[in-house]
Design a protein around this nucleic acid. Structure first.
Lengths: 155, 155
DNA sequence: CTACTTGCAAATGCTTTGCAGGAGA
DNA sequence: TCTCCTGCAAAGCATTTGCAAGTAG
């Protein structure tokens, strides 16, 4: 299962004359295991022996060959995830309380509405979109639970 | 027209014991005139006499009182725009060729689909979203025209 | 007068890069 | 053996902050 992923990454790296080395593999595995956008900090924890400068460099290389996508979260740190043609198209739930990001897959009904909207944008603005990102900001279920506790105490 | 905006900003600043000074007014006017998310660089051009450190500080203050929202574009620079309760809810068209960002207002049909999707997210993930951002990445009409020219030349 | 503002210069901290040694094919 | 990769340390650069003078009310 992960074999297919590794082979795909190797192929894409080779296409730009680069090698799938152990350091790069570590990064890819960290992203695959996380299943959500991870920060450099996260990668530092998931791969303790990998120097930061190498992690940054691997991420740049993996972005250039289309394996990784950089995600701008609502805070000051970039996150990284496997690109959607490797995983699946998804949206992000960003908790503004704890900062964590979760993936969600859109419902068919919503995807249909999005497709229609894309057509509208091309017709009305001449804008041809190749990709989009939809991020929801709010409170995750954990933080909402914690908040409810606090509120209860104060009443 | 702009009078209402200025009064609103002054009110919000006063609520946190801050003053609506000329420097802050310059920033607000730059954002209002631009009508799209602007970078610090843009602000530097729109308000040449305002020091950067002051611009940054004003933006922080204006964010804290809910007048300004920071937008993470696809490149390395943050952009800033008036918050949606002052302007109107909108999405972004981000051109990956020239880097410019344009605002678009969603169609009623799409807004309806979005509302339904929000309900789904609460039901399925327990995530209560207070806000969302939808950015389209692609090629704007200008750049597409320029590209077409290049492609034509090469055939 | 007292509290908030502002400009300058210096600091901060994430991210990038030069370089020299190491490794894949 | 020729490229590409990697680690370290140093540099870059957008953004933040300390401080002292300025200003609003």
């Amino acid at each position: 299962m992960d074999e297919a992923l590794h082979r795909l990454v190797e192929l894409r790296l080779n296409q730009v004359s680069q090698r799938y080395t152990s350091g790069r593999k570590v990064v890819v595995e960290a992203l695959a295991r996380a299943g959500r956008p991870v920060s450099i900090e996260d990668i530092g924890e998931l791969a303790p022996h990998l120097p930061r400068s190498s992690a940054y460099r691997h991420l740049v290389d993996l972005q250039q060959c289309g394996v990784v996508r950089r995600v701008a979260a609502n805070d000051d740190y970039f996150r990284f995830e496997l690109s959607e043609d490797i995983t699946e198209h998804h949206h992000h739930l960003m908790c503004t309380l704890c900062g964590n990001v979760t993936d969600v897959t859109p419902t068919p009904a919503f995807e249909k509405a999005m497709a229609t909207y894309l057509d509208d944008l091309l017709a009305s603005n001449g804008f041809l979109s190749s990709d989009h990102r939809l991020d929801f900001l709010g409170a995750c279920v954990r933080c909402r639970g914690a908040l409810a506790g606090v509120v209860r105490e104060h009443t």
